[in-house]
Computed example of a mutant assay.
Amino acid sequence: MKIVQIVTKLDTVGGAQSHVLALTKQLCLDGHEVIIMTSQGQLIEEAMAGKSVKIIQLRHLRRDISLMDDYRAFLELRLYLQQIGPELVALHSSKAGVLGRLAAFSLKIPTVFTAHGWAFTEGVQPLKKLLYKQIEKLLAPRTTKIIAVSNYDHELAVQKRVVSKNKITTIHNGIQSNDKQPYFRNNVPKIVMVSRFEKPKRQDLLIEVLSTMKELEWSLELIGDGVELANVKELVNNKGLSHRVRFLGVRNDIETQLQDADIFVLLSNFEGLPLSILEAMRAGLPVIASDVGGIEELVVEGKTGYLVDQNVLNIRKCLVRMIEDRPLRIELGQAGRNFFEDHFLFQKMYDNTVSLYKEALKEKKVKRNVQLLDHNRA
C-alpha cells in the first residue's frame, strides 16, 4: 500500500506521535510505502531515524485554530495528496484529522482517522467540546473508517451520535514488549510521571498532593517538556520541594528511567488510552491514574494499581499506601506487566490496524464498482 500518515505535530513526544512513528516503521519494514505529513518545527529524533520514510513539513498546519492558516493548510494538504497519489490517508490528532479528511475526501481518497481521545470527551472545556462534537458529526460521513483507541471512546462517539456503529472500530494501543524488569532497589521510593507539561496533564495536582506528604520519604521525577513547565517549577519552589523533585526534560531512554522507578502516576483531566501507562506496565510498575477516558481499560483497580478522581485526599491515600508497602508495589507491578503482555502488545495492534486499512480500500473499490454499474445502466 501507498499510505500518507498525517499528524498535527511531530516536534514533541506524545501518544499520537509515538503511535505514528511505530506504525510507520513497521509498515515500511513490511514493504509498504509511507509518507508522513506534519507541521513545521524541529522533528523529534525518532522521526529522522527511518531514512526510508519521507517526511513533509507543511507551512500552514497549526495546532491552534486560525481560519486563514487552516484554509491554506487544507489547500497545501490537497496539493501534496494530488502529487503523491496515495491509496490511503491515515490521520491522527484533531487538527490534522479535520483538514486531512476534508482534503482527502475532496480527492476521493479513502481515509482512516484514529481518535487518540476525542476532543469532546469529559473534562474538555464546554465550548471546545461542543465545537469538536459538531465538527466530528459533519466529518464522520466523509471518513471511510474510524479507529477508537479505547472502548470508552468507541462508546462515547456512538452514544453522542457522532459516528455510526458500522464505521468505528476499537483497536487498543500497543507497544513492543521487552525482557527488562524493574530494579525496585531504591531506599527512597521513586515516583515518576511521563507527560507533556500542558494544563490537562496536571503535574501541578501531583505536586499539591506530595506537598502534604513531607513527613514521608519519597522522590519525584517529571519527564517531558511543554508550556506549563515553568509554572510547575515555580510551584515546586513555592512548596519547598526543590530538593525532592527532578525535572528530566524530554528523554530518549524512557524504558531505563521507568525501570529505575517504583511508582508511576498520571493525573490527567482527560485521556484516550495513554501509551505512558502501557510503558509503565511493561516496566512492571504499579500505576496510580485518573479514572478518565480509557484508563480503566488499562489499570485494574486494586490489582495493577489504583484509579482516582482529582481529590487530593484520595490521591494521597493511594500514594501513601504504595510508598509504605514495598511488597504491594511489587505485586501490583507484576500483575500490570502480565496484563500488558496479555492484551496490549504492538503486533496485535499493528495487525488489526493494517486489516482495517485493507477494509477501507476494499470498501472504496466496492463503492466505485457500484457507481460504475449505475453509470452503465444509465
Score class of each variant (00 low, 15 high):
158 V>H: 05
67 L>W: 08
122 E>D: 15
177 S>T: 13
257 Q>N: 11
297 E>C: 09
159 Q>H: 13
50 G>W: 05
141 P>H: 06
330 I>W: 01
135 I>L: 13
239 K>I: 03
64 D>F: 03
340 F>I: 08
332 L>A: 02
2 K>V: 08
175 I>F: 03
364 K>E: 12
185 R>W: 01
186 N>P: 08
144 T>S: 15
41 G>R: 12
269 N>S: 15
97 G>C: 01
191 I>L: 14
322 M>Y: 03
224 G>Q: 05
276 S>W: 01
108 K>W: 01
371 Q>M: 12
264 F>S: 03
54 K>N: 12
6 I>K: 02
363 E>C: 04
310 Q>E: 09
28 C>Q: 08
103 A>W: 04
30 D>C: 03
214 K>W: 07
77 L>M: 15
303 K>G: 04
9 K>V: 12
219 S>Q: 15
120 F>L: 02
304 T>V: 07
261 A>I: 03
13 V>I: 15
258 L>D: 06
76 E>V: 01
337 R>C: 03
212 T>Q: 13
326 R>F: 08
311 N>E: 13
37 M>Q: 00
231 N>L: 12
205 L>E: 12
111 T>M: 00
78 R>T: 00
357 Y>V: 07
286 P>T: 04
128 K>F: 06
199 K>C: 09
337 R>K: 14
318 C>N: 11
350 Y>N: 08
253 D>H: 10
67 L>C: 06
165 K>A: 15
93 S>R: 04
52 S>I: 04
342 D>H: 12
315 I>A: 07
209 V>Y: 01
40 Q>D: 10
309 D>H: 11
363 E>K: 10
323 I>V: 12
319 L>M: 10
113 F>S: 00
48 M>I: 09
230 A>C: 09
5 Q>D: 14
213 M>N: 02
375 H>G: 01
137 K>R: 14
326 R>V: 14
309 D>M: 06
177 S>Y: 06
106 S>A: 12
8 T>F: 01
139 L>D: 15
239 K>P: 06
36 I>A: 02
260 D>K: 10
285 L>V: 11
301 E>H: 09
174 G>T: 07
355 S>F: 04
334 Q>N: 11
217 E>T: 12
59 R>Q: 14
16 A>V: 00
47 A>D: 01
356 L>F: 02
288 I>W: 01
354 V>K: 10
222 L>T: 05
48 M>H: 08
117 G>M: 02
58 L>W: 04
102 L>E: 01
129 K>L: 04
20 V>L: 06
270 F>P: 01
87 E>D: 14
48 M>N: 13
378 A>P: 00
36 I>Y: 05
